[in-house]
């Protein structure tokens, strides 16, 4: 079943066409990689999916409904969660509270319920803390729950972003360079984590420059260059594709 489908998506900034007529599908339960040289338009595609930008043209269909023009928070509650290329945590709040932000969209109590501290509100708060701890345990950060986010190591901050996204109970998780700044050991653990996410029923779409990670974990790969899709297929085919090799010539040394 197709979970997400991008149809002829175009986005330009002034004279620059950052995303040019891009179409691809993400099947439910799969792990899909989006790769391409620097400035190819990968992050822009993510920003289009999450509603941060509005496409000039094209359609984004999630679960059979168009999500173009929906505000970001609404798209999150529909079931798409993301992490950011440059870490965007709530640095001065605790690790637990960072994850609680993800629980927010699955909670209901408003300001009045909070002031009156209704039983339903108390119960909801308790359950949210449990769920947040569950997400932290999933990524292995449960012992750091009370730390401030800014005191975590770089690799752990990336994991915290994943936990926060996970707390929104997404169907589709999109990760923008999750291994950025991680060492080899952390990257290895990340690969296991991504597979565990998928085993939990979450579909994963990820951008990554670390080719060994992409080749090992992704079932399908979409390649962008200068905003346009130049290839799509299974890892082995992508590796052998002359167009992809050409696009990566000279930029591949960070493998």
């Amino acid at each position: 079943m197709t979970l997400l489908s991008l149809n002829r998506l175009t986005k330009s900034f002034g004279g620059l066409t950052a995303v040019n007529n891009v179409s691809f599908q993400v099947e439910g339960g799969s792990i899909v990689g989006l790769i391409g040289p620097n400035g190819a338009g990968k992050t822009t595609v993510f920003n289009l999916i999450t509603g941060i930008y509005r496409p000039n043209q094209g359609e984004i269909i999630f679960n059979d409904g168009s999500i173009v023009g929906q505000p970001t928070h609404r798209i999150v509650s529909l079931g798409i969660a993301r992490t950011f290329q440059t870490i965007r945590l709530f640095q001065n709040l605790s690790v637990l509270e960072n994850v609680l932000s993800g629980c927010h969209c699955r909670m209901k109590s408003g300001s009045l319920a909070a002031m009156l501290r209704l039983p339903s509100q108390k119960k909801e708060e308790r359950r949210a803390v449990e769920r947040a701890l569950g997400a932290l345990t999933f990524v292995g950060l449960e012992s750091q729950a009370e730390q401030l986010a800014r005191n975590l190591s770089y690799g752990n901050q990336r994991l915290l972003e994943i936990a926060r996204a996970l707390a929104t109970e997404p169907q589709l998780l999109i990760l923008d360079e999750p291994a950025g700044g991680m060492n080899e050991q952390e990257t290895g653990a990340l690969i296991t984590l991504i597979r565990r996410l998928r085993d939990r029923g979450i579909t994963v779409l990820l951008i990554e420059h670390d080719m060994s990670l992409v080749m090992r974990v992704c079932e399908r790969i979409v390649v962008l260059e200068y905003g346009a899709k130049i290839a799509e297929g299974e890892p082995a085919a992508i590796k052998a594709d002359p167009k992809v090799i050409e696009a990566y010539l000279g930029t591949e040394e960070n493998e």
């Binding site: 970001t72 965007r88 001065n92 509270e97 927010h104 408003g110 909070a114």
Partner: peptide, 20 residues
């Protein structure tokens, strides 16, 4: 509460809050 936290999230990083 959820309300108070939401205010803090948007103070800390509006884009990340909306994205969460």
């Amino acid at each position: 509460s959820r309300f108070g936290r939401a205010l803090n999230y948007l103070r800390e990083d509006e884009t990340a809050a909306e994205g969460s």
